[in-house]
Design a protein around this nucleic acid. Structure first.
Lengths: 342, 342
DNA sequence: CTGAAAGCGCTTACAG
DNA sequence: CTGAAAGCGCTTACAG
């Protein structure tokens, strides 16, 4: 099973030095073209495989990036982060890097254990994918290597993060509802749960403010407990004419619930989501929603971490990735507002 | 940013040798308890992190396992393999190993390129997750390191694989339909596409044979082209009383299609799926289906690859992981068959 | 153009 | 109990 062909073996076969083999295989200068091609040919013949770990040690780089995802975001119904990880992994590949997935389980997060990938120097940098506790953020800050937060941020921590422009996306889609004549609009989401949900709420609120629509406490509806687990959504009565949901998954659940009670969507009630994931096209009618640009988020996260590896001092701050409204069939036009339609 | 505390630094501070530090931190014999604890204390004080790559090189092990997933199984609607990867990654952790995800893209598969993780000696073994082409299987066989196929196999290739007992699962769920009075049963799936779909078909067929129900060609319905991409499902006319679908996703699609045409499920037509994934509970009525034991598959795959790393000659052959029927609401009892009900 | 020497951070015999 | 020596498979100056 062992394939232990090394540069030494090639060198011995050809009666040259290891240095020369190293130069030839690395396409460096200082070897005649003729020798170089002889070496390369023999290398393939002998099924030589380059030993990256050896180079790694010399350079002090592992060519791995750790991707940390908190366990609670990896449950059966959620594949958003797993998906982004997949993109990250693909993009890292273009840099000659690899992604190592590290699921952070509840206990380790609570006990403030450092991830093994860090303690064992397995990675050159880490991308934290999904909000972790304040305490854990502080712990991460003590880690001496480049790091990026993706899809969340912490206003107190001075860490670079790549996030969707939740605020603006939510603001825009709420504007869209108002343009379509809605004024009685609820927001669904635990506004103390994650920065994303909170910012989406604030975008909704800004839109109300700008249109002089008073915000009603009873229309801010909770959807999950402090640990992020779903709770039953309590429908307000009377029903508002539209719901801004903090994500498509919850919009899907809401839609199901309303339909079960005999309401038609969007005739009796409009719904908009956020993410444009899987759930958006699964629900019927399909959801009008804000699309999160996953590829862009993954790309920027990877580019930034690579940049930080090469230039240690480099800072990026909070990078916002713009979303885009996808218009589908879950919003009813009540009476078009002439001002906005033009 | 650099944290380059090495054993040498600790040794120098304490005026001892590197060997002694290595023994102390590795909890080896040959250091007095007193010195050992002094060394450990200083190590934490200095934020020393163990350099696994260095040990790796010495031992010739990377402590990484490559998980190869063909690109076509990672599309937006499919998260099955990503999910298994997640379990694999979690279980590898218990061995002190890490999982490196390697998406195999169409071109590389076609061009028969070896994965970079292999060429660069980044991994000690690989798990191939999801069926690859015959040619690529042959290429994988030439790779000189432990390997496991998960969720598919090749009858010609002599490689260890971990698969769901597709044949038996499908046989059982078809039996269940027949016990409920169904005799006109269709199978949906491209039976030349993957070994899973083929074996599930054969289980269905065995059940028909055993009950002396003739198989009708027109009731074997294609659902995807040779590249695995969905095609429109053509409903047979007249409609059979039940459909055995090769997976829940397709069952979900079928259910939607039937409902759109005004049929009620299961009143007009029964449907069973396979996998018990996300789609099974998403469709309404929820699907009666065969649950694939993902955790078990991941566990066996990991245990086997670890075993093979430690004992190179070790072979496992084809390991079948039993499924389990999950009874829900998508099957109508036509007239119970007294013999089977008892 | 070619190669001897030193080193990356550890561990494993082996000697004292 | 403690440590000098050799080595894992490479690369990077530097010398010839």
């Amino acid at each position: 099973m062992k394939n232990n062909v090394t540069m030494r073996d090639i060198a011995n076969q050809l009666g040259v030095s290891i240095v020369t083999v190293s130069k030839a295989l690395g396409d460096k200068d200082g070897v005649s073209e003729e020798l170089k091609s002889r070496i390369k040919r023999l290398a393939t013949e002998m099924n030589y495989r380059y030993n990256t770990p050896a180079r790694s040690m010399k350079e002090g780089l592992s060519y791995n990036i750790g991707v940390i995802i908190p366990e609670r975001f990896t449950e059966i119904s959620q594949s958003f982060y797993l998906r982004i990880y997949q993109h990250i992994s693909r993009i890292l590949d273009t840099y000659g890097y690899y992604g190592i997935l590290n699921i952070l389980n509840h206990d380790d997060e609570e006990q403030l254990y450092l991830p093994r990938i860090y303690n064992e120097k397995k990675v050159d940098g880490i991308i934290v994918l999904g909000q972790v506790s304040k305490k854990y953020i502080e712990l991460i800050e003590t880690m001496q290597l480049p790091k990026i937060f993706t899809d969340f941020y912490d206003e107190h921590a001075d860490i670079d993060s790549v996030i969707t422009d939740n605020f603006y996306g939510s603001y825009e889609i709420t504007n869209y509802l108002i343009q379509n004549g809605h004024t009685n609009i609820a927001y669904i989401g635990n506004i103390h749960s994650t920065s994303s949900i909170q910012d989406r709420f604030l975008g909704y609120y800004k839109s109300l403010l700008e249109h002089n629509i008073p915000m009603k406490q009873e229309l801010i509806i909770n959807d999950r407990d402090e640990r992020g687990r779903d709770i039953d959504i309590e429908l307000p009565s009377p029903l508002p004419s539209a719901f801004v949901c903090n994500c498509d998954r919850v919009a899907y659940k809401l839609s199901d619930k309303l339909k079960a009670k005999g309401y038609n969507i969007p005739q009796d009630c409009s719904i908009v989501g956020f993410d444009n994931d899987f759930y958006a096209t699964l629900s019927s009618p399909q959801l009008t929603t804000v699309e999160v640009n996953m590829v862009q988020m993954a790309t920027i996260s990877v580019n930034s971490i690579m940049e930080k590896i090469n230039h240690p001092g480099k800072r990026f701050g909070r990078v916002l990735v713009q979303g885009q409204i996808i218009y589908r069939d879950s919003v009813l036009t009540l009476h078009p507002n002439k001002d906005d339609i033009l």
